[in-house]
Structure formats: C-alpha cells, structure tokens
Design a protein around this nucleic acid. Structure first.
Lengths: 127, 127
DNA sequence: CTATCATTTGGACGAACGTCGAACCACCCG
DNA sequence: CGGGTGGTTCGACGTTCGTCCAAATGATAG
C-alpha cells in the first residue's frame, strides 16, 4: 500500500485555529497528498462499495463471503467482484480463499484513516 | 444459496464488536443511505477539490477568494469555478460576493460529518 | 479424471466526469 | 456611461467509471 505522507494529525501544529478544524483544514494539502487521498476516497465514493464495506464490516465474525454479498445486490457477480477488487486494491479490505468460498474482511486502520482527515480533534487526549 | 458465512476464527467478544467499529461498520447501510453518502464522498474524492477545500479551510480568516485559489493551480478559471460549484452544491462550502471578489469558506459541520462515518469509537464507553 | 460450482478476468458499451475555450454577468474605476 | 477586471455559465471533447456478457481459473465432489 502506498502510505507515504498522509497528513495524519500533526500533533505539534501551531495552527491559529488549532481547535476549529479537521486536519484537512489545518494546512493546505500538497499536490501529492491530495492525489493520494483522492484515490483513497474514490475507492469509497460509490454506493455499491459503500454498502459492501458496511456489510463486510458489520457481518458476524468480521468477515463475509462473496456469496453473501452478491445476493444483497441486484448486480451480476462480476460487477461485485470488480468493486471488491477496487476496495482491496485501495487497501480497505483483505481477502482469503478458504475452500469453496472467498472471504473478505475490513482493515480497520485504513478505514479509520479516512475519518481522521475530516474529524476535528476526536483525540481522546484532547476532548 | 444462503450460505451464512460462519466465523471460522473464534471470536469471543461480541460486545467489543459493537463498539469497535466505525459507524459504517456497525450495521449494513441501506441503499438510500449509501447513495446519499456516495454523493457526499464523490464531491470530495478529487485531488483538485481536496486541495481547494484544504486551502479554503486553512486560509487566514477562514475564507479565501477565488483569485487566491486559481493562482495555486495550473488550471483555467472555469475549471476551478466548476470544482467550487461542486463543493458548494454538496454543502461543503459557502460563498459570497463582496465587491470585486468572491469569497469562499468551509462549512465545518458538513466536513466533520464525513469523518464521523469512518472514525471508530467516538463514544466514551470504549477506550 | 471429469463434472460442477464459485469467483475472477477480459472485452465492450453507455454514462458520468474533468478539462478547456468562448461567451456571458457583476462590479469597480475613470 | 463605457472600459476593464474578476467569476461564472455554456457547449464540446477525451477520459474514466460502472455495468454487463462471455470465458477462464480455482477448488471440490463423485
């Protein structure tokens, strides 16, 4: 996965508005940062992928097999597989084949990373 | 076939699962919720709009005029205007014309709402 | 080994997106 | 009132994206 220089809440920021803003609003994003972030966000900015992510994450045991997911949509299996691949490539989910079925699970850190960008100081040490 | 994926990995902590995850991973999103969220995310899932949002939010006084924004990109004015319109339509930013220039500012609540989706444990029960 | 089921890959097509140039509106200044 | 600057809207073009169908791959059962 990429993960070069994501603006992950620089603790010692001398921001004039240290309280008001989400990390994204503390300092201007560089071109590279923005490009990388856009890729991450694009991977989630789709109704089907959003539901897939949600279904996988909320499924019992923390993982779901493709067979469960395909049923929930009125889409063909290749389409679902395509969306899963997008999420996997973006590092959002992991997958493993166990016998007949393929199981998918969420990688929480990567999902949470999105949140930290827009969340204004949800730091427990700060609240 | 309704092959409910059984948790092959033994999980003894159901209670934690209820709290561990981001809102998006607590329960499956409905089709409507996913569609609405996708629209919100799409508005931000673009490098230019990401930078615009970041530049506006981090600008002194909490607002920036288009003239400042346009200079920072190697894009034509119509393109910047287009992206600003997308952000405005999505409710991310507000705008006002004051004399010669048009100023833009961030609407923090809308931006923060994105974060809460992916941010785990915003509740004090955990941690 | 062959048959069969589950999932992924490849190709194709229509829709949506990002970008531009040109035309258009709003305001300031002589 | 007319000219000039700042921003937006409009129409068009090339690209990317989501979806499907058909076919290939992987794994299990008989």
């Amino acid at each position: 996965m990429t993960a070069t220089a994501l603006p992950l809440v620089p603790r010692s920021k001398d921001a004039q508005d240290a309280v008001c803003c989400a990390p994204i609003a503390r300092r201007p994003l560089s071109e590279g940062e923005a490009a990388e972030l856009a890729v991450l966000l694009k991977a989630v900015a789709d109704p089907v992928r959003l539901r897939l992510l949600s279904m996988i994450g909320s499924h019992a045991g923390g993982e779901a097999c493709v067979c469960d997911l395909t049923e929930a949509f009125e889409l063909t299996a290749p389409t679902i597989s395509h969306h899963l691949k997008v999420l996997r490539t973006a590092g959002r989910i992991g997958s493993e084949r166990r016998g007949t079925w393929v199981y998918y699970w969420i990688i929480p850190d990567h999902v949470a990373r999105l949140g930290t960008l827009f969340t204004p100081l949800a730091d427990p040490a700060h609240a």
